[in-house]
Design a protein around this nucleic acid. Structure first.
Lengths: 195, 195
DNA sequence: CCTACCGATCGGTAGG
DNA sequence: CCTACCGATCGGTAGG
């Protein structure tokens, strides 16, 4: 029991260090030797805790993706009208991305480096999320509260502003994740123009 | 004259092939040998036309960046009110990114791989563009046509939807760059909600 | 967790 | 534009 806890802790350290380096240097720009060196061990020792470099990426991308999908399911189960759903979805999305910004950044940028089969799985997962957003927008149209727009286009634009947050969000800054979510929702719902 | 034209053409071929591969595999994932192989020459021969791998990235990132800044200067010279400025800026931004989507993609994603000094220059250039947008938003506020918002935040959100286009735009699809720009402007100005 | 090592590949240069 | 090559580095394994 103690042993497996130790291993698990080491694994967590490896994950944390890897994601930090990958955010700075990219997946391909981060070597196993550098990860090991940051932990004061040899590269070969990493393989006692993870099976290979790609596992780091796979666990991160699918972990984040599943968190987003879980949030979406929850939103659809609990909230009734489209505006409420969008608000909750945005809040969850920002929370998931900012809870571990290194993981969020890698999730957004580095999934392309997944091997062929994993990449296809990831794209399928992402498409499910995207389609869920399209459905909410459609619901809003049906309710008569959203403008009639190209929902696919609107969903992509919405997602772009949600995902871009990993580029500029500073955890120690003057906006909490929920405040960001609130401002973003206002922007998405009302736009720049004064009524 | 003929010789220099030949060289220049070869250089353009190298640029085009490189950007296509880098869009698919990333800057670090694209090797000089693979670029050469796609042109049926040896890797060493590339160095008669470009000085090194980074030059491809540098020319692309600063070329695109300068195009965006030029467009912004033009907009500020010609258009008077903020709504008109935003419309024109968005149109120019989308045009620049979609004219060569490979270059657009590399510009948006791969500038991080620039060497230290170039990267700092690039960030400075990007900040100038960002500040230009903030100024237009401020002008719109002063004119009383835009909501009072955090302009920095609004500028980043605006930029996110402009830049995300390199992720999903399909040149052969059913929207021209100018149509995308128009829809995007509507979205940014008016948001999702029905008035 | 380490030593020792593998085959492969990298960006780039010398010299023609 | 090529041949021949450089030193460096990569992800990963064998065996302890």
């Amino acid at each position: 029991m103690l042993v497996s806890q130790k291993i698990s802790t080491r694994r967590n350290q490896i994950m944390a260090v890897s994601l930090q380096m990958m955010r700075k240097l990219g997946y391909q720009g981060t070597s196993m030797r550098e990860i090991a060196s940051a932990l004061n061990i040899e590269a070969a020792s990493l393989y006692n805790h993870i099976s290979n470099k790609e596992e780091i990426l796979k666990v991160t991308c699918f972990g984040m993706g599943n968190q987003l999908l879980l949030g979406m399911n929850e939103v659809n189960d609990i909230y009734f009208n489209a505006v409420e759903k969008i608000k909750m979805l945005v809040k969850n999305h920002i929370r998931v991305l900012t809870t571990d910004l290194n993981a969020g950044w890698v999730f957004i940028h580095e999934w392309r480096n997944l091997s062929e089969t994993s990449r296809l799985d990831f794209i399928a997962l992402r498409d499910r999320y995207e389609n869920g957003i399209i459905e909410i927008l459609q619901q809003g149209e049906n309710e008569g509260v959203f403008n009639e727009v190209n929902n696919k286009f609107a969903a992509l634009t919405l997602l772009s502003s949600l995902n871009w947050i990993v580029e500029w969000y500073k955890p120690g800054g003057n906006m909490s994740p929920d405040e960001v979510a609130e401002k973003l929702t206002d922007f998405i719902l009302s736009g720049l123009k004064k009524d």
